[in-house]
Amino acid sequence: MDFHRAMAALRTALADSSRAQAAPDLVEQVLDLVRPSIGLAVPARSRNGAATDSVAGWYGGLPGLPDGVPWPEHRGRPMTLLAQLDCAALAPLLGPEWTLPRDGVLLFFSEEWFHADFGTGPGDDGCAVLHVPAGAPRRDAPAGTGVVPALPLVAAPVLAAPDYTEPELAALFSADPIRVMGLATEIRDRLPTVRHRVLGWLDSQLAGPAGHRPLLALEAEEGTAWGELVGVSFWIGGPDLTAGRFSRVRRVLEVA
């Protein structure tokens, strides 16, 4: 993604907006918070079992785990793999805006019943994100572990804008709630919505842990059994994101 070119196109698209014309100072302050992201989707043809090209990862499935890497557990019970992302396929989509490892695979696990306490510590023991080498041998899930049917994911770079409820807009919103709400909503409406997203902002109004940013947001797909939950997002602290540390990732759960 050429982030600067994409931002220029967004500014051009806002040129006919009466809200933007009436508050150019506010527009720039909201646009300063727009972030690059990657949208992920399951191609329609893959749902019928057809082959899919340019796979950038998998929703569910079984992980490739090197020998000696244990399957993540929560209180002695193996977690379920929700997604696996191919860093080498995703990194070129964002270029210099990509802050994650440029090779290997990221594996996203969560305890199956979403019962884990978030606690007061820096991490969340009900989820785990592992960065493993590409090509590690696929490992069968431990007995009794929920396995989400594997669905291929294709990827495309997209801009992501904050909702007016985000803490980063709190000061502006307090000073001018009507205009900030209108501007933030209009900017988000002019950007594509995606089913699953890497980095950026959430498409919902869910608040994440203080000091954290979205790492991966997932919606329920066919074959998952989340009950009333419709989305799971993984969040990472700013310094950990910069350093590529995944030991303190936390989750946010979205209920219908």
Score class of each variant (00 low, 15 high):
D16Y: 08
Q205C: 10
A141C: 12
V232Q: 01
V105S: 05
L107K: 03
V147T: 06
G231M: 06
A15R: 13
V180D: 01
G211R: 09
R179G: 00
H196M: 12
A22W: 13
A217K: 00
S247E: 13
V55C: 04
V30S: 07
F173G: 02
W113N: 15
E73Y: 06
V30L: 14
G95Y: 10
T185K: 10
V69N: 02
W98P: 06
R35W: 07
V147D: 05
G76A: 07
A41Y: 08
T165D: 03
R245F: 04
G227A: 14
R251E: 10
V158G: 07
G146K: 10
A8Y: 10
L130T: 00
A8D: 14
G146P: 01
V249S: 00
D2I: 10
L206V: 13
G119R: 01
A15Y: 05
E219T: 14
L206R: 11
R138N: 08
G39M: 10
A160L: 02
G126Q: 09
D140R: 06
L10N: 07
P177Q: 05
R251V: 12
A23G: 07
D53P: 09
P137I: 07
R195W: 04
V129A: 06
P152E: 02
W71R: 04
A22S: 15
L10A: 06
F108V: 00
P214Q: 09
R11A: 14
L191F: 06
A141K: 13
P162W: 08
V34C: 07
A156L: 08
V69P: 05
R77G: 08
D117Q: 07
